[in-house]
Design a protein around this nucleic acid. Sequence first.
DNA 1: ATGGTTTTTACTGCGTC
DNA 2: GACGCGGTAAAAACCAT
Length: 328
Amino acid sequence: MNQHITTEENSTTEDTGEDTVESNLEYQACDECGGDLREDEQHGEVICEDCGLIIDEKAIDRGPEWRAFDSGERESKSRVGAPTTNTLHDKGLSTNISWQDKDAYGNTLSASQRQKMQRLRTWNERFRTQDSKDRNLKQALGEISRMCSALGLNNQVEETAGVMYRRCLDENMLPGRSIEGMATACLYAAARQCNTPRSLDEIYPVCRVDNEKAIDRSYRYIASELGLEMEPVDPRQYLNRFINGLELDEPQAVRRTAEELLSIAERENIHSGKSPTGLAAAAIYAAGLLENEEITQRKVADVANSTEVTIRNRYQEMLAAADYPVSR
DNA sequence: ATGGTTTTTACTGCGTC
DNA sequence: GACGCGGTAAAAACCAT
């Protein structure tokens, strides 16, 4: 049984997000060529349909759109209360007292009322995070949220990571492990499952875990304990991001060629056992050669967190497998 | 723990600008 | 001389067993 954890039911952007995003994008045009923009939700990127320029890597959570224009929509969109979210430790269901000292009409409160509200806030906060699990969860979700922002990962990843962490907590997997480590591991797994992988090398600098291996260990633990069936990362998922990190004249040509090379590599079975980032880097470098782009091994290695040696080995194998150089 | 594989580190020589 | 590239050897990391 393939137990992919997703949060489709609870995703706040699920049913309304798509049309909303599409209609928003209609009004925007690509800076480079003026083409239409398309949101690649899988990769959390906004891409120009024509030239493929990535306009925005960090998907913005545009939040729920609660408008309904006919009875059908009203039916499908109707909810009781606010949407629940796994990014808050109580799923956003608890009382929240505004920090502003305003009443419902926006009028400023009197001094005594202000004092009263302050006391209520204090107590509300105490009840909200009453037991240790809640406090634990609150901290973990805060960490996950922070790291998601730092890494430019979208809300779906945050939700998924949140669900995973909850499961870890429910299954009593936390004792003896650090909250930060498990939260980071959940995020790593979630990013992979949402097809927006980030390598451990990328995650490590933004997390608050002091050793990189601990994350890896926790990740494996989670994956096996929760029965996640994690497939190896597809190197193609790194292409856009890495290419974007290089300043190229024809990024799209390079991307297409690199994609092709990776597909061939996959077909010829020279990819298994090799690091996905290294493969992606080598494909980009090789594509650069074929497309007459000036890309140095050093630069690709840098954006891909790999090394020149690895790129050399991989790209030669790939070109050989592809029977290149064939000029095109 | 162990052995096989892959990646990284460090160093070298070569050609070019 | 700096730079990009290719190769190598040895260390380190990784992975299945």
